[in-house]
Each structure stands twice: as C-alpha cells, then as structure tokens.
Design a protein around this nucleic acid. Structure first.
Lengths: 253, 253
DNA sequence: CGTACCTTTGACGGCTGTCAAAGGAAGTGG
DNA sequence: CCACTTCCTTTGACAGCCGTCAAAGGTACG
C-alpha cells in the first residue's frame, strides 16, 4: 500500500543502473506531490511541458470523440511514466487524470534531452519503456477488434493483475481494481451496460467477481483460459542490446 | 515513382541535421536491397536482429490471432523505419512483409545504440519517429472503436493520402493505393465482405472510387467531412524541445 | 441525511460477421 | 499467344453481438 515506486525501479527493469544513473533519475523526482482522485495533469491542446512519474496510485490518459464518447488510451500503474508518448509533440493530443489519489512527480520534458545526453543506456531504457507501453496498446487493439467483450474483460483484468504484480505483492483473491464499469467500458470501447452484463455472467460462472475497488479471482489459470491470454508481450527482457550497452559503458571509462 | 526515400529525409522531418549526422544515417543505408512483393522481413518469434529502412514500396507489420484472423498493425510508406517498435524486445512479436515490391536497407539493431551515443539529437528524433508511429496506431484505435466502417474506410484512405503526400507528389484523382479489400479489412479489423459493400456505397455516393492499385478522390474536402478527419496527429513539429537541442549542440563544440 | 456516483435490468434495433457462390482481372508457363 | 491458376471483387441470405434508451435500486461521501 504505502510503497512508493520511482523511476529507478522502473528503468531498472530493463538495464542495470549505475549509481550515477540512479542519481540522475532521482534528480527527476525532486518534487513529489499528492494528487487527488480525478486530478487532471494535462488536457488536450495544452503545450507539452512536464512529464510525470506516477509513484503511487492509478492514472489514465484518454481522448474524447466529437460526440462525447471517451476512449482510455493508457492505464498507468505505480512506477509508470506519464507523457512519454507525447513529449516530442508541440501540444498534447490527450488528457491525463488520476483514477485514484496518488503521488506524482512532474519534471520538464526537456530534461529528457539532458538525460539522453548524459547516459545513452538510460536513453535505450526509455526506448524500452515506450515499446512496452506501445505493446500494451497493440495487444488491446488485437483483443478489442477480434475478441468478444467477455474475453476482452478477462484479458484486461488479467493483464492488469500481471502488471501490478511486477510492482508490488498482489493476491488474486483481492486484487486492487478501482475501475468502475463505466471506466471499463471506456477502456475497451464498449457500453457500460454491456460491461455490466458480462461482469454478471463472469461472476455467475465463477471466473471473477468485481467489487467496487477490487476484483476476486478464484482461479488464475481459469482466467488465463477464459482470456485466451498469451503473456509474451509483457516481458521486460532486452537481451539483444545488452552486450552493446556494456561495451558502450566500457568505452566511456 | 523512382524516388528513393532514405533516413535523412525521414529524420530531417523532426530536426535540422548536421552533416556529420547525415553521414551517420547514410552509414545505416549501406546495403540497399530489392525486395519483391510479399517478401517477409521477419516473422513472429524470430530473434530481433535487423531494422529496415523502407526506401521504396509499401510494407506492413501484422499479427495473426489463434483462429487465423490477421490484424495489420502498421502500414509503412517510403521513408519509414521498420522495426522501431520492437528493437528493444528479445524476439519479434509480429511479422513484417512487403505489400508491393520495393527497396529496403537492413541494419543491425544494436547500431541504434551507437547512433544514440553518437548524437543525442538523433536519439530525440528517433523518439519523435516512434511517437508518430504510435500516434497513427492510437488514431486507428479511436476510429475503429468509435466510428462506423464507412467512416473508418474514409479515414484510412485520407490518412494514407496525407502521409504519402509528405513523401512525394500525389494527385488525389489517382493516388497510389495497392491495398486489396481483404487487406483493408485486416487493417480495420473487419470482414472483406463488409469492406466491399462500403466501397460500393462510397463509389455510388461519389466520395471515392477504389481501383485495383489506386484510389480516385474527386473532392478532398468531401472526404475530410465523410472521414470526420482531424489531422493534428500527423504533425511533424517538435517545437518545445528544439531550443534544448540547440543548446546541447552548442555545448558539445 | 442528501446528493452524486455506481450498478442492475429490460426491450429493441442495427451494424457487421459468416457462409456460400460466381464473375472478373492479372500473372505464369507452355 | 493461349490456357490455366490464383487472386481479387461482388452479391445474397441470415444471425447475433452489442449499442441505445429508460428507469430503479445501492453505496459512499460530505
């Protein structure tokens, strides 16, 4: 609960961090800040200024269609970076909000430039982070376009469980899940009414039971099967590039 | 037709290239290679080894579902880089193929590391390139989840027209479009039968006429309206970071 | 204790997928 | 240059998943 997840942990998924790099990253987290549920970090049309490290809490980015529907683009969990997708754009094309109260650290987007200059390995780790966020998006697209709503719901819950487990201990019988049925609909591109019917059915069938702020998963394997889940896309490994990065470090000494 | 589009043009969209950077990029294009229609550049499960610069021709990346449906993830046009999405992964999770015959240059993925080390501005330009590819994906998701198939088709054709126009001259009355109805279905996540009905209707209504290898667009503005198109996401501008990049260049001298 | 948000349920309709089959157009080999 | 094969396009019938509209009951929070 109280665990705070910073950039060090996040980038450390991909490469071994040297102490100097750790210090660089900590420099970006100078200003932690309590954000309340629903708080807006940026909105569509804003000039891009800050990126945010989500140290605690859940957040999302989204866009609204011209007739008022909302599509969630990313779900951000503790340790994730908000704004990586857009920091090279002149203006934001999405909006970002906290789903729960949490702790965020903002830093100016141009500090990414400094980071890239100071440490090529960190630059590569940033590429890795972007790739992972994009992989989530791609998988979401595969599932929403080719699978029934029931499978979509199962898939999303399981994916979130696995992501969360990387960051902190999670028990399947009571996994934190502060996502309303409406929000779930906005994530999967479906109506909240239909989401409700599916959650009812999943509960009836003993696959999962969603409560207000958490989900109970009696049988994880069962959920894998229901979701037709293949978890390769969640891997943090970066095998092929590591030797080159090590060589690079050797050179710079 | 015969114009060849390399990395210089591609990265030059985002930053002003210095001559040393131009030379670095040309170094990646040592081995241009004629690839035939349908040729496979990599497939799912392959260890990640090379990225490819598409100098001429059209290509795509895609994934297949377990029951044999195919989803196109990206459509690549001349000047685009194939493999940016995945170069930090240990293995490919997608497959890549040429849609038409063309010219590609492969280079080992670890040369990206060298590039990032040699020129932080180029590293930032790579971030920009990834962001733009991701923006295409996001826009596709918005449209496929929230708009009718008719709008989806119009949107995709117009998007492709605008992308192509950045690279070479295109006349709306005969825009190259070597995309079969089946492929169009695989891009938008719909059945080719339904795509056909929509193309028939669009022709009847005078919005566009798709021929085997090209599309005729009698009235571009009409297509904008039909597509409910908002083109902000196609911008190459990178305003906010440029000063910092200039400062960086000043330092390194 | 009231208000706002979240969940639940029913009725109805339409967009889009599936199945099936036939007709064109382009490319290939003899 | 012709025959053949393969890919691409077109059309009809039918079904079902899921959206929309509407309304009521729960639950948390101030």
């Amino acid at each position: 609960m109280g665990t705070v997840n910073g950039l060090g942990a996040s980038m450390g998924r991909y490469i071994e961090l040297e102490s100097s790099e750790r210090r660089l990253l900590e420099g970006l987290e100078r200003h932690p800040y309590r954000a309340v549920r629903g708080e807006r970090l940026w909105t569509s049309g804003d000039p891009v200024q800050d990126l945010f490290i989500l140290q605690d809490g859940w957040a999302c980015t989204f866009r609204d269609t011209r007739d008022g529907e909302r599509q969630i683009i990313e779900l951000l969990l503790p340790g994730d970076i908000l704004g990586l997708r857009e920091f090279t754009l002149p203006r934001h094309v999405s909006e970002a909000r906290l789903i729960t109260s949490g702790i965020v650290c903002g830093f100016p987007h141009h500090e990414i430039v400094d980071l890239v200059m100071a440490s090529p390995p960190l630059a590569i780790a940033l590429f890795a982070a972007i790739s992972r966020q994009e992989a989530l998006l791609t998988e979401r697209m595969m599932v929403t376009l080719h699978r029934s709503a029931r499978i979509q719901v199962c898939h999303f819950v399981l994916e979130t469980f696995l992501r969360l487990r990387k960051v902190r201990g999670v028990a399947p019988e009571s996994m934190p899940f502060p996502i309303s049925q409406q929000l779930l609909g906005q994530i999967l591109g479906q109506s909240s009414v239909h989401i409700n019917r599916i959650l009812m059915a999943l509960e009836r069938d003993g696959v999962m039971k969603k409560h207000r702020d958490y989900v109970a998963i009696p049988d994880t394997q069962r959920l894998y099967d229901e979701a037709e889940f293949e978890d390769g896309y969640l891997s943090d490994r970066m095998d092929g590039l590591l030797e080159r990065l090590e060589a690079l470090r050797g050179d710079s000494r």
